[in-house]
Design a protein around this nucleic acid. Structure first.
Length: 264
DNA sequence: GCCCAGGGGATAG
DNA sequence: CTATCCCATGGG
């Protein structure tokens, strides 16, 4: 077990319970998740206690992002200010692009507990078993699955999206290479995948491709923006222009705050 | 039982 | 281009 005192503001519960990741579960005071094929155990009691090294923590939890500078830059009004105050230390996570893509295709017209259920089912059925659980399925494993097998995981009508997207990836689309493209170009590529629309593409850009200006727009964010900032036809564009280069942080603070307190 | 969920695709206008 | 409609499933 390592004991680490982060230099950066870091609130573990807000970070892992905010609907950006789906393979983390809290047992008592310890969060457990399978990342890059390994079981990570992490808790926070003043300092961070974990079975991983500081390099992993820094990469996965984006500890090189200067959160105070970022939050200052998005702290534009009383509404976002309340979310920042309530959720201070919430960090965006740097996920694996493939896992992020599949997870958010599953997220459409779905709720968080059920997204978690589906992702666990997929991992159990198509991942690789190791001594502490199942890895997230490789693209090849999903690409050679049958629609019926996928449907058994609870995917519903999304089964074809998952299968066809997996087949496109295995036939030569390297998601990690999208990191080197601009936000617009990366998103354009993602939008060609079945089951990927504006919202899912923005989530993949924000949570796995380092495109911090992405401003995913779901029904919650739509309601937030309309209530706080008035009628708005293009919420994505509004978010990017209003909050700036770190609009994605503003988006996630608003999203989680709205979900916690159900401010209809 | 009922309502709804971090939407996307197809179709019509 | 925008407006509807439908989609499977199970948590709350």
């Amino acid at each position: 077990m390592h004991h680490i005192q982060p230099e950066q503001p870091f609130h573990l519960d807000h970070t892992l319970d905010s609907g950006q990741v789906f393979r983390w579960h809290k047992n008592g005071h310890v969060w457990e998740g399978i990342v890059n094929g390994e079981l990570i155990q992490i808790s926070q009691n003043g300092s961070i206690h974990c079975n991983c090294n500081e390099g992993f923590l820094s990469t996965y939890f984006r500890l090189n992002d200067d959160l105070d500078t970022i939050l200052s830059s998005i702290d534009k009004d009383e509404n976002i200010h309340k979310a920042i105050t309530a959720l201070y230390g919430l960090r965006l996570v740097r996920q694996d692009p493939w896992e992020c893509l599949i997870s958010f295709i599953c997220s459409s017209f779905n709720n968080v507990p059920r997204i978690k259920l589906i992702v666990e089912n997929l991992s159990r059925e198509f991942g690789t078993q190791f001594h502490q659980g199942y890895t997230f399925p490789a693209p090849e494993a999903l690409a050679r699955a049958s629609v019926k097998e996928l449907r058994k995981c609870g995917l519903g009508y999304r089964d074809k999206y998952i299968l066809e997207t997996a087949q496109i990836i295995t036939s030569g689309l390297d998601l990690k290479k999208l990191k080197s493209l601009s936000y617009e170009k990366a998103k354009e590529t993602l939008l060609e995948l079945p089951g990927v629309g504006q919202k899912v593409a923005d989530c993949v850009c924000l949570f796995s491709l380092d495109k911090l200006e992405a401003f995913p727009c779901d029904v919650n964010i739509q309601k937030c923006v309309n209530r706080f900032y008035g009628p708005c036809t293009n919420v994505r564009a509004f978010g990017r222009e209003y909050f700036g280069e770190y609009a994605g942080y503003a988006n996630h603070y608003l999203f989680h705050y709205h979900r916690l307190y159900r401010t209809r």
